[in-house]
Design a binder for these strands. Structure first.
Lengths: 244, 244, 244, 244
DNA sequence: TATGAATGAGTGTTCATTCAT
DNA sequence: GATGAATGAACACTCATTCAT
C-alpha cells in the first residue's frame, strides 16, 4: 500500500470498515466525494452550529446533491459526527510529538503548554467544542466519544511524559493522573470557561497564554519538582549566564 | 419596609393591592404559575437542549397553555434565561459566604474548593451549562451573560479573598487574578471537561473531589504561601498533636 | 323627549331598538360605555384595518375590559359593523342639506360636488371604505348594507334634487337616475379609484377638487341644461359684471 | 437570438438546458405546477380575502404541499401579487387595442367604453379588486402597484387616444388627463361603487352597460366635441340614411 | 355586572428527508 | 449512482373568545 498522506489512508480504511460495519450498500464509497461533503459541512457547521446549519446550506457549500449526502451519511447527526472526528484529527495530530523529545523539562512543559492552550482556545476548536457539547444531549455518547478520542488521548500522552520525568528523577508525584489534569488545567487557567461560554469572543493573545503557562509551569514544578531538577536548572542558569 | 427604589416599591405595592382587590394575581404575576412554567421548562430544556426543546413540549410538561407561557415570558429565550437565572440562584446562593469567615486559610480553601467543585460538577449544573453553551452560538451574549453572572462573580469573590489573605501576610501573589483562576481550575482539575463532554456520566464522588481539592490547595499554597503561613501552620500542627 | 344632540338621541334609540330586536340580556345597555367601546374601536380599526386590529388593542384604547366588549357586541365583526354604522352617520349627516336650498343651480351643484368629493376622498372615509370592502367577502351583506345606508341615500337625495330642477325647467334629463350617478362620478373623476387603491396616499387638495368639480358641472350642465338655464345664467353674469 | 441583458439570457438558457438534461423542470419552474398553485390560490383568495386566506387553505385547494408553494413563491404576498398579475393579464390583455384603430370617434368610444365597463364590473374582476383593496391596508404599495399596472395604464392609453383625436381636430379639451378620467368614470357611472360594495351581487347586463356608455359618450362629446366632429357625424348620418 | 387571565387552534414559514427521474 | 423537486411535520408565536372570580 503506497503511503500518501496518513490522513487520506486513514479515511479510506475507516470508510471501508464503516461500510462493512454498517452493511451499507456499495454506494457512498468515493472518498473524494466524502471529503467534499465533509469540507462543505465543516464550513457550515462551524459557521452556524448544529441546529442552525441546514442540509441545503451544506449541499450548496459542498457542491453535491442532497441525495448524495444521504448516500454517504445516514442523517445530519451522522454527518456532523464524521466531521468532528476528522476535525479533531487534523488539529491535534502531531501536537503531542513535542512531548517525545527529552529536552529540558521546564522548557518542554512551557512549549507544550503554550501549544495546547493555543489550540484548545482557538476560535475554531472552541466552536467545534461548543457544538459538540450542545449536541451531546441529543446524540448520546457523542460528547463522550469526542472526549475519549481527543482530550483523553492527550491526557494519556501527558501521563506517559510525566512518568518518564519521574523515572529521570526530575519529578516526584503521588497521583500522576491527577497531576496531568492539573498541568492541563493550569495551562488553561480561566481561559477554557471564558471561551466556551463566549465571554471571551476572541482567542487569547500569545502573550497572555505565555504568561498563564509560565505561571502554571512554575507552580507545577514548585509542587512536583525534585531537588535534582532544581540542581539541573541551577546549572543551566549558570551556563546561560556564562554565555552572555 | 426598606425603601429601595420608589418605582420598584410602587410596582410591588400596586401588584399586591391588585391581587388583594381581585383575589387573583395580575397577568404574568402569579408566582405559582410562574414556577409551574419554569419547572416544566427546566425538564424540557435540560432534557433536550435549547434548540430542540419546543414550546409545545414545555406547554405539555408545565401543564399550562401556550398563551399563558407567553404572558409570563416574552419568548423562548427569555423563558430559558429566567430558568437559568433561577437555577443559578438556587444553587450558588450563599456558596461564597464560606469565603467571608477569616478561618484558617488552608481549611477555608479546602472547604470552599470542595463545595465549588461539587456544585459545578453536579449533574444538574452540568446539564444547564451544556444547554447554555449549546445555545451560545445562536444567541450571542447568552453565554456571556451566564458567565458574567455566574463564574465571573465567583471569581471576583475569590480575588477579594486572596487579596485579604495577602494583606494578612499569608500569601504572596504577583497576579492575583490569575491565581484565582488557577485555584478554581485546580479544584476542578480534569473534572470540568470530563463532565461537560459527558465522558463522566455521573458527578464525581465526595472522596474524589476531596482528593483533588486537597492536592490543588497543597500546590496552590506551595506556590503562593509565605513563611508566616508556614509558621502558622506549624503552630497549628503542634497544637493539634498536643491535643491528641 | 328633550332634544340634546341629535346624535346622542339617535344612539340611545338605536341601542334600545337593538336590544329589543336581538333579545339580548339586560347587559350592554349603558350607552356611555357603548360609545366608549366604539370610540376605541374606531381608532384601532381605522388605524389598522379589520384583520390587523386586535381585540386587545381595542380593549386598551377603549379602556374597558375584554369581557365588557363581549357583553355589548357578540364578536369582532358585529363591533366593526356597529362602528361603520355610526361612522357613516357622523360624517354624512347634514351633507345633503346643501341640496335643500333652492339657490342658483350651478352654484349649488359646485358647492355640493365639492363637499361630496372632499368627504368621500378624505383619508378617514377612504380607510373605512377600504375596510368595509375588504371585509365584504367575509361578512355577507356588510358592503351592501353600507352602500344602501350611505351612497344609496345620497344618490336618492340627488335624484330628488335633479327632479326639482327639471320641474323648475332648468334641466332636461331622460334618465334621472343615471344622471345622478353621472354627476357624482364626474365629481370624483379619477379620484375614487386612486384613493381606494392607495395609489394616492393623501386626500386631494381643495384646488384639485374644485377643478374637477367645476369641470364636471360644466359637462353636466352642457349635457342636461335647458335654454332657460342658459338664459338665467346669462342674466346673472350681466348682473355680476354690472356690480364690479 | 436577440441579446437583451446577458444575465437574463444566460439564466433562460441554463434553465432550458437543465430541464432538457434532466427531463424535469427546475425548482419553481414547472409552469403546470405554478398554474395549479395559482388556481388554488385564486379560489381561496377570492373567496376569503387576503388576510383570511390561509396558506393551508391554498395548499389544500391547490393540491400541492406547503413546501412546494414556497418553492414557487417566496411568501403569501408574492403569491397573491402573482395571482393578481396573471388575472389582470388574462382579462385586460388586448382590450386597449380597440383604441388603436382610427375608426369613427363616437363608435370607438362606445365600443371601448362597453368593453371597459363590462370587464371592470365582471364578477371576477370585482372580486379581485375587493381583495386588493382589503389587503392594501396591511401591505402598503400593493394597491398602488395594482393601480399602476392596471387602471393607470389604461388611463394612459386613453390619454394618448384623446390626444390623437384632438390632433385630428375632433375634440377640444383643456385638461386631457381629467377628460380621460371623466370618460372612464362616465362609462362606469354608478356601477363601480355598487359592484365593489356588493350592493349589486351580479354584473350589470349588456343592455344596462350599453345604455350607460352611450349616455356617457353623448355627454363627453357634447362637452369636448368640435364643430368638425359634428360636421363629420352629420355626413355619416346622411350617408347612413341614404343607405337605408 | 365587569373583569382580565387563561386558553388552544391557528398563523406563515422552514427544512430534514424521500423518491421519481 | 446521482439528482433536486416535493413533501409535510414541526416551529415560535398570536389572538378571539371564555369563564372563574
Amino acid at each position: 500500500m503506497a503511503e500518501t498522506t496518513p490522513d487520506a489512508e486513514n479515511d479510506k480504511c475507516e470508510d471501508l470498515l464503516d461500510s462493512l460495519r454498517r452493511g451499507r450498500p456499495a454506494a457512498g464509497q468515493d472518498p473524494v466525494k466524502r471529503s467534499q461533503i465533509i469540507d462543505g459541512a465543516r464550513r457550515v457547521f462551524i459557521d452556524k452550529g448544529f441546529e442552525a446549519a441546514s442540509m441545503n446550506d451544506i449541499t450548496r457549500e459542498a457542491g453535491v446533491s442532497k441525495g448524495t449526502i444521504y448516500v454517504y451519511f445516514a442523517n445530519k447527526e451522522e454527518l456532523f459526527e464524521a466531521l468532528i472526528e476528522e476535525e479533531r484529527g487534523s488539529i491535534f495530530k502531531n501536537m503531542y510529538d513535542l512531548l517525545d523529545r527529552s529536552d529540558d523539562l521546564r522548557q518542554t512543559l512551557v512549549k507544550f503548554g503554550k501549544v495546547l492552550s493555543m489550540k484548545i482556545t482557538s476560535a475554531r476548536v472552541i466552536q467545534a467544542q461548543r457544538t459538540v457539547i450542545g449536541a451531546s444531549d441529543r446524540i448520546p455518547d457523542m460528547g463522550a466519544r469526542f472526549y475519549e478520542r481527543g482530550p483523553k488521548r492527550g491526557h494519556d500522552r501527558m501521563v506517559t511524559f510525566l512518568n518518564a520525568a519521574i523515572e529521570r528523577g526530575l519529578l516526584r508525584i503521588d497521583d500522576v493522573d491527577l497531576a496531568a489534569y492539573q498541568f492541563t488545567d493550569l495551562c488553561l487557567a480561566g481561559l477554557f470557561r471564558q471561551c466556551i461560554f463566549a465571554y471571551r469572543v476572541k482567542a487569547p493573545s500569545q502573550e497572555e497564554i505565555e504568561h498563564i503557562v509560565r505561571s502554571g509551569v512554575d507552580m507545577f514544578l514548585k509542587a512536583y519538582g525534585t531537588a535534582s531538577l532544581a540542581e539541573e536548572e541551577r546549572h543551566q542558569m549558570i551556563a546561560l549566564e556564562a554565555k552572555s
